[in-house]
Design a protein around this nucleic acid. Structure first.
Lengths: 347, 347
DNA sequence: CTGAAAGCGCTTACAG
DNA sequence: CTGAAAGCGCTTACAG
């Protein structure tokens, strides 16, 4: 920058202004500066700029993993929403471990991000404290926190579970199971667990047993997880009429297990998943599921942050801790259908 | 840091040393400093540290998108390999556009990363120049560059295509097609195109026509792309015996299209994909494919960089521009089989 | 519209 | 083993 200013015959301040706010510089000097920049191949140093202005234009995103396409979509949406305004994503992976999340928050804070986005609503005590003391916007995503730290963008996993149960009940099913994972002290992904809780609650409200909820392995679930749990469920209760898998990934594995066993879906068994992953619409038969727009969670979070960054008044910020619910949608496809035998019994 | 040094009654230099190289400080003073840090909840500012030391510990990764699980895996692998050493990933998405790649490189350079990893081996002229002038390690991944900028980690897409063709030929097929996308001036993803080129070359070497290679739409391919191109191919050549889809994503869509049309796979048609995506092993029948370990590309790249960072001598660096080939592997599953009618004719 | 001065919070390179 | 000085390359906050 020193070189540029010398070549253009102006002060460094003027060069800085040309870069930050070209309008405030006369056209002639601006041109001279631009030419000098061009000629020298000058690339501004934002590390210095960040230190000086106390704004890094970094947004930290802490996600379980990029291996799950939902989180990848969220990261993508967030990144795209922020990029036009010059914000750069700093991604960290927790691998679904709370302790890892805490470690990542600690190191990320040293990078002085302008905001932190974190997936999930459950954190270690130390992590929560660090976030609270960071004095920057915090957004918890992919869940509806009972005790929000600051802002949140997501949906209620509990309500997803309830919706799934009510839907299967509405089809006339009574022997209803679910496929999920075991709760693990170390695991951070309690989202599936919340869905099962809502599912179970809705079943019991309807006077239906929730004993066919299978919990096996630890999050994240896999295709294989679906096949394995479905196998367990079918062995335990061959008369099961409907199954909710906490993820389409599981649902797909479960569907394949049914194929292998010759269990007809949906003729003998209604099956539904969660997530509306790409795969769900492509299988034969296509899987009934509940869609959450993962990309939109990212985009909405990005928009919320840009909004927040615009507000210069920090008091104003503190007041309006927003809680965006992006909702979810049941996508009825071909793996579920009305239980005719029950209908006849009832009718 | 000023506060910490005052509370501990030492100079800032000593605080800095405790953080950077605790060994070089007496145990008693170290303890005093640690306590002061703890008490004040001091979080070091790496923005200032980066400016001062001229090392940011950032590694930029430029990928088409995170929506493709292969690139997500690579990003994950790279991030995990680098994190233990304190390096932070800066991810940018090109959306498969060369112009966007150039723009991203330009803005990333302002962040002063210690290295740049970029997917693909084709770049705009300006992008190539910027990378060459950056004076940091550059790694091109996911391909084998004809004219490498610096280092590379990947495999030859051309050879993948050849391997696919040779495999289908070895099964006795002669009417062989492929499903890919059209080359687009704007598109950055010429990887699929390279696979088709190798495929076509191997067919012609064997004296087999390559007229059944269908190119439709632009990268990236989708499930729907597979269904659509397969549909076109079947209309054009109902007697096609074997098909290579440039991606498992397409292969899956193609398989579903076959189901819908009642075309038996592999009885009437051998089908294979590329990528060994999760989905390929889970379909019924499971899809024959070619596996590239996307995560390993990331990990190997990370290891290469850590190696490079260790070498203090810049001369040494320049000499050994390494080119790592991670190879690929044909995974024979259930969508391909020997063409018996041909075998008889021949036998 | 333009500039001179001070400072962001660290680390480098010397001294002692 | 510890410290005082200088500087990394910008922006902020004033002046003019």
């Amino acid at each position: 920058m020193r070189d540029v200013s010398r070549l253009a015959g102006v002060s460094q301040m003027t060069v800085s202004r040309v870069l930050a706010d070209p309008e405030r510089v006369t056209e002639t000097t601006r041109k001279r500066v631009m030419e000098a920049i061009e000629q020298l191949g000058y690339v501004p140093d934002r590390v210095a700029g960040s230190l000086s202005s106390r704004r890094t234009n970094f947004v930290t995103a802490i996600l379980p993993t990029l291996t799950n396409s939902n989180f990848a979509d969220t990261a993508q949406g967030l990144g795209e929403a922020l990029r036009p305004k010059g914000y750069q994503l700093l991604i960290g992976f927790t691998m679904y471990k709370l302790a890892e999340e805490e470690r990542i928050i600690r190191t990320m804070l040293e990078r002085r991000p302008d905001a932190i986005v974190v997936a999930g609503t459950v954190h270690t005590k130390a992590a929560t404290e660090m976030l609270l003391r960071a004095a920057i916007p915090i957004v918890e995503i992919w869940g509806k926190p009972d005790k929000p730290i600051d802002h949140s963008v997501g949906f209620s996993n509990y309500e997803v579970g309830r919706a799934a149960a009510r839907y299967l009940l509405s089809l006339g099913h009574r022997r209803i199971g679910a496929l999920g994972s075991r709760t693990d002290a170390e695991a951070i992904d309690l989202r599936g667990e919340r869905r099962l809780a809502g599912f179970s609650a809705a079943l019991r409200e309807a006077g239906v047993s929730d004993e066919l909820i299978v919990r096996e392995g630890t999050a994240p679930v896999s295709h294989d997880h679906g096949a394995r749990t479905m196998s367990i469920l079918l062995d335990r209760a061959p008369d099961v009429e409907a199954v909710f898998a906490v993820s389409d990934v599981s649902a797909f594995g479960a569907l394949m297990e049914c194929h292998r066993r010759g269990v007809q879906v949906p003729a003998q068994l209604s099956l539904m998943g969660f997530g509306d992953f790409d795969i769900a619409s492509q299988t034969v038969p296509a899987i009934t599921t509940i869609r959450v727009d993962a990309g939109e969670i990212g985009v909405r979070t990005g928009e919320l942050l840009l909004d927040l960054f615009d507000k210069t008044d920090p008091t104003q910020r503190a007041i309006g801790a927003s809680c965006v619910d992006v909702g979810f949608k049941l996508i009825e496809r071909l793996t579920t259908r009305v239980n005719k035998s029950r209908s006849q019994v009832r009718g």
